[in-house]
């Protein structure tokens, strides 16, 4: 068995879809991937234009103690308590960062690095201690396993079986994030690019910021079981940055993250099938593979064009 298995088109692309059962099983995984990518892509576009990509990183690490606490208190991995716990932790985290930054001589980057590593470490310790007397899987929260999606129980409404619960939850989160993005699009747009103008126009800049933080925590928690807290950063950053090579308008960037999410999920799935490795990680690797040519060849800001034009100028 070697590191790079033989490339077999038929095995990689047809085998997962050969029988109906396999189709349903893998379809659920891919659908979950798409929903995660879309949710994170929408939130991520706003985060990236606000230059808060690393804040996203920090929050996604910083919610860990809240998750651990919520799990210890409620004893389940249900979305409700987990979200509340993570919101509390996420807001505390961002509050600590701001406080250190403005009230002490600590610089912004050091404050960020200090707070989120401390929060993360506390969370890992809490999970580690809890793991001894409860059956929570810290690995699941840290790395996620999207392949377990089809194992989730069915959502029941009376006697009606509506299908996979995990998918329904993720779909609900996606819908609420999408609706919020559409409804508050103008406010977010103005407060992202010109907070002073936004304030003079009566836009509640602080509340917009807070709402964005809350939806960031919501997206992170919802996609936690699928991709884990570290890889979720990639889901935030990659679609937005890749889209920004092609588009300048924020709305186009947000919309372009949808086809990108589709591509990441399907491409990552088959990549993982080829290499027989972690599904979530290979989704991110696929995103990286898509990013590289875009970075070089994007029509108006690709590196290649820039270098050639520089050379022309030199002549």
């Amino acid at each position: 068995m070697t590191l790079i298995p033989e490339y077999d088109f038929k095995k990689i692309f047809f085998e997962p879809w050969s029988t109906l059962e396999l189709c349903i099983w893998n379809g659920q995984i891919i659908l979950m991937g798409i929903l995660v990518c879309w949710t994170c892509g929408i939130v991520g576009s706003f985060i990236v234009v606000r230059r808060m990509a690393l804040m996203g990183d920090a929050i996604s690490h910083g919610i860990l103690p809240g998750l651990a606490l919520a799990f210890i208190c409620s004893g389940s991995m249900a979305l409700g308590p987990m979200w509340i716990g993570s919101c509390v932790a996420g807001i505390t985290c961002s509050f600590c960062i701001e406080w250190l930054r403005f009230q002490t001589p600590i610089k912004e980057d050091a404050a960020l690095g200090l707070v989120f590593t401390s929060f993360f470490a506390t969370g890992v310790l809490m999970l580690g201690m809890e793991a001894e007397n409860a059956h929570i899987d810290p690995e699941c929260i840290l790395y996620g396993e999207i392949g377990f999606t089809p194992l989730a129980p069915d959502l029941k409404l009376g006697s009606l079986r509506l299908g996979n619960q995990a998918l329904w939850t993720m779909g609900g989160v996606f819908l609420s994030v999408a609706i919020a993005a559409v409804v508050f699009y103008r406010q977010i747009l103005i407060s992202s690019f010109d907070p002073i103008l936004a304030r003079s126009m009566g836009t509640p800049v602080r509340q917009v910021h807070l709402g964005l933080m809350l939806s960031l925590s919501l997206a992170t928690v919802a996609s936690l079981e699928a991709v884990g807290v570290i890889l979720v950063v990639a889901m935030f950053v990659f679609p937005a940055v890749t889209a920004s090579f092609f588009f300048d308008r924020l709305s186009s960037i947000v919309f372009f993250s949808l086809p990108l999410g589709l591509a990441y999920s399907i491409g990552g799935f088959h990549l993982a099938h080829w290499f027989d490795c972690s599904l979530a990680a290979s989704m991110v690797v696929f995103a990286g593979l898509l990013f590289i040519p875009c970075c070089f060849l994007a029509p108006n800001s690709g590196i290649l064009w820039k270098i050639t034009s520089l050379r022309n100028v030199g002549r």
Binding site: L3, V48, R51, M52, A53, L54, G56, D57, Y143, I230, L231, V233, A234, F236, V237, F238, A240, V241, S244, F245, F275, D276, C277, S278, A280, A281, S282, M283, V284, V285, A287, G288, F291, C295, S301, I303, K306
Partner: peptide, 26 residues
């Protein structure tokens, strides 16, 4: 490129990490 520093750090951080996880699970 026009990628800003914070995004660039986020991209490299998560991208490389994902490659690492891929190889480790392999």
């Amino acid at each position: 490129s026009k990628v800003r520093q914070d995004s660039a750090l986020g991209l490299v951080l998560s991208g490389f990490y994902a490659i690492g996880i891929c190889i480790l699970t392999r």
